[in-house]
Design a protein around this nucleic acid. Structure first.
Lengths: 325, 325
DNA sequence: CGAACGAGCGCTCAAATGAGCACAGGGGGG
DNA sequence: CCCCCCTGTGCTCATTTGAGCGCTCGTTCG
């Protein structure tokens, strides 16, 4: 039975309730103390407090002390079943600035979650590079390059140094190599993989416990790999249902890896290896990547996210629609 | 490990804290449940919640559902040690409108706190009249007129009917009389007091348990009695420290009654009788009355207040300054 | 290099709290 | 007119929670 008038039980009752609520919630007194102070039974106090909360007189909010939207973060974490999740509060639309913010957030997250027992894997992505730039401290761990680089003409991110830079901050050994992410044919790829540096890095992939990656959508400007692929191949892959690209690994909307000729021409971590990594943290931005992120998470390729509030909201909404259509 | 900024313990910790806080404060889960859900010890959960509150991440506010500022009300109640207190949220400066609002609030308060065992006393004041106008329901109690009326020329509040009107709503007997609040000399006063109606009402004053009154400051336009007094007498009384007037009773800044020739010329409740009333509810408005209200409360003449937020704030501040100068 | 220190963690025990129950009083319907 | 339901109240007992303790581990200073 709900009182229709919303609890208008007289002003004195209202004021008493407020006083009790103040003592309890703001001054931290126990209900017994309050009961004694106001000459009430503790049950009465408890009921007063229940009323106060039910009538909306006591409002409790979870705030954000910094640039992180903690509410959205935990919601998204719960919705997608993530291990970690950081949602920044910036509603910036400019990609560069967004990337910088997310990079900083990811750097903080990494500083926090990486322990000396971990092995860190880094995929090649501008957002990961931004993370490296912002990284200030890191436990001493081996740092392993997971993919070849895919430098785009005219863009110098100096990100070939990515792994070395992070390893320098960490103080641990760096396993890196100079090779492209994709090569023209499978034979070249096989040859490259036999290169000592490449082979050495690859041999460490199995022991990686935490990896950082970007997530690309299979569309123009939404994936460096897409942009570097021939038009015929793009179309063919799209037809096979490719939805997302994570660290060179292509998956469909359900998150299942899509094998293709391109797979054999890649220099980098495989789908199976990526799934085996305990925690893959993806830095993602841009509303175009909603489906790609969902696919990556569903497929178990990604279990942690660093993103911005707009995308986070869209993700929660999309996941909700999927769950209960 | 250098944590430069206090409390910044990493975004993952922040998000976890937020998630725990949400479950606890918003979803009402027990700490044990939360501990199981997040695979933590219940102590860890408790510490997380302590952190969340200490760092200001959890904000708890006491809101006001209506026109009553419950926070201010209870603060004022605590500060002055009042029995009841109602502070309306109106910041109206127009006296008539203010009086109307306060009258309505007082009427609600009266409906709530008056029980069939009470005896209600009414003093003559425009604010009490406003209360009567707004009064809709009241337990069946005797209603006693406490003072003569002091009708000002040109102002018709039809408030001679005050006591009868309230008694009609209540359904109880009315003890009223037609006499002025002050007469030219003590002999006339004595004669008037012997009038049957007056004597009958006066004989009931001792049994009054709840009284309503206004509070006047001893200054022009701040007390009907002041305005009706000769200039010589005004000055003499001011010199004797008169600070406030409650229902015809004059008190100094400390709340002590000030006896004078005027006292003998008054038709109404005495200081001692007023102190004996269990609860005297004063309806007050206007910042000029800060000191008067403090005096009335200190002297024990008034133990409940109905007022507006501006005056309430000023009262709290003034009381605070007095307490710790 | 070792010891002192402080932070973080989980335990114990007592106090605080919640859920359900029994009882009293009051108002409306039979 | 009486009875029943409904609300408000305080009780008992099981669960939850808080305060203080000792432990361990990492850090820092001698």
């Amino acid at each position: 039975m709900v009182t229709a008038t919303g609890g208008t039980r007289g002003p004195a009752h209202l004021v008493l309730t407020a006083a009790v609520a103040r003592r309890y919630y703001l001054d931290g007194r126990s209900k017994v103390e309050i009961a004694e102070e106001f000459s009430l039974s503790r049950f009465k106090v408890a009921r007063l407090l229940d009323d106060a909360r039910a009538s909306g007189m006591v409002r409790i909010e979870i705030g954000h002390p910094g640039t992180i939207d903690v509410e959205l973060s935990s919601q998204l974490m719960a919705t997608l079943g993530l291990t970690h999740c950081v949602v920044t509060d910036t509603q910036e639309d400019e990609p560069a600035s967004l990337r910088e913010h997310l990079g900083a957030a990811a750097a903080e997250l990494l500083s926090e979650v990486v322990t000396p027992d971990d092995v860190l894997g880094l995929s090649w992505a501008r957002s990961v590079s931004a993370m490296a730039t912002a990284l200030r401290s890191l436990a001493t761990v081996p740092v392993v390059q997971l993919t070849g680089a895919l430098a785009r003409p005219g863009v110098d991110d100096s990100s070939i140094e990515l792994v070395r830079e992070v390893a320098r901050v960490s103080g641990g050994p760096a396993y890196f190599f100079y090779a492209p992410m994709a090569v023209p044919d499978a034979a070249t790829a096989r040859a490259l993989r036999r290169q000592p540096e490449v082979a050495q890095a690859f041999s460490r992939i199995g022991s990686v416990t935490i990896a950082l990656a970007g997530v690309g959508a299979w569309a123009p400007e939404q994936s460096t790999l897409y942009d570097a692929t021939s038009e015929t191949e793009r179309a063919a892959l799209a037809e096979r249902g490719v939805c997302a690209e994570i660290s060179g690994v292509l998956v469909d909307a359900a998150g299942e890896p899509v094998r293709s000729a391109l797979t054999d021409r890649m220099i980098g971590i495989t789908a199976a290896q990526m799934c085996a990594v305990r925690e893959v943290i993806a830095i993602v931005y841009g509303l175009a990547k909603v489906d790609a992120v969902l696919a990556a998470v569903r497929g178990g390729m990604v279990n942690s996210l660093v993103t911005h509030s707009t995308l986070a909201t869209a993700l929660i909404e999309a996941a909700g629609r999927k769950a209960a259509p």
